[in-house]
Write a protein that binds this DNA or RNA. Structure first.
Lengths: 155, 155
DNA sequence: GATGATTTCGCAATTATCTTGCATCATTGG
DNA sequence: CCAATGATGCAAGATAATTGCGAAATCATC
């Protein structure tokens, strides 16, 4: 965590709302000149604070109607074995997020698929056959109340 | 889900990798002219497939070291009562995602905070006092293997 | 405080990028 | 087969991003 002054902070907040703000518009929003905004953004990128720009897509509009959370437990003493299975998992485009977690499960996946049929197929074809899986639990999202909210930037 | 032809698909895939691709670079990547790419992107926005552009920030670089999942159950027959509590929750900048889900819990939250102390404070100060909460479970992420992976675009 | 070094700043010119009118080509539905 | 509609590339015009530069602000040291 490097220096984030008040202007960097404003810039990041504004760009989190809309990353396509013009330097002119951004400059006005943060009370700085466009040229200086440009230089600060370049610095934030160089420092690794800004990692890149992503498209916000509407999954429903792409026919992806179902979001689900999948909780996986692996056999103890075999955390090494699933290593490559995990790599395979991460490569699948159904898998949007993947974390290892404390608690009763080892992995939490967020998957986005077309429908329940595809979710079922994904579970039985891709997850179940994985070596070393001890337990699978699935929770289907009914409503998505907030996705990818902006990160807090201090100060 | 409107028409997504092969060019739209390529455009969306390329822009999911890097939303700042220049129209010239994009055009080359998808074998189309820059002007046509511009028009197709405008159409994808108008159709609501592209919702906007987001910044990909490095949470660690911002001092946000801890990701956790919080599972909430609310008292049955009181799904209405927490309505405004939920709105409050969504407004908090610790809360990155929020879904209602099937299964033993009602809500899944993904929160990102500075450290475990802040997580603890968030749980005891913000979540626990919420009216109608029946149960809280928390799982702390140890590793983030994939975040916000690209959505599949067909064809 | 004073002072020199360093950084940050805004302006303006340059460079790069995006958008749009237009003529042509492809596709679709009679 | 033809007309109508839509898609395309090109090139010109419009916007936006970057950078050199001198001025202003900040900082460290005395």
């Amino acid at each position: 965590m490097i220096n984030i002054d008040r202007f960097d902070s404003r810039i990041l907040r504004a760009l989190q709302r809309d990353a396509r703000l013009t330097l002119g518009a951004l400059a006005e929003a943060v009370s700085l000149s466009p040229s200086q905004c440009s230089r600060r953004i370049a610095r934030l990128e160089k420092e690794g604070i800004i990692e890149g720009h992503a498209l916000r897509l509407n999954p429903e509009a792409l026919g992806l109607k179902v979001t689900a959370f999948i909780f996986l437990s692996v056999d103890k003493g075999r955390m090494a074995a699933p290593r490559e299975a995990v790599a395979e998992l991460l490569a699948r485009d159904e898998v949007i997020d993947c974390h290892t977690v404390t608690g009763s499960h080892d992995f939490i996946l967020r998957v986005v698929v077309a429908d329940l049929a595809e979710l079922s197929r994904f579970l039985s074809t891709t997850i179940s056959p994985m070596a070393g899986i001890r337990d699978i639990a699935t929770q289907v999202a009914m409503d998505t109340l907030k996705v990818n909210g902006p990160l807090r930037v201090t100060p």
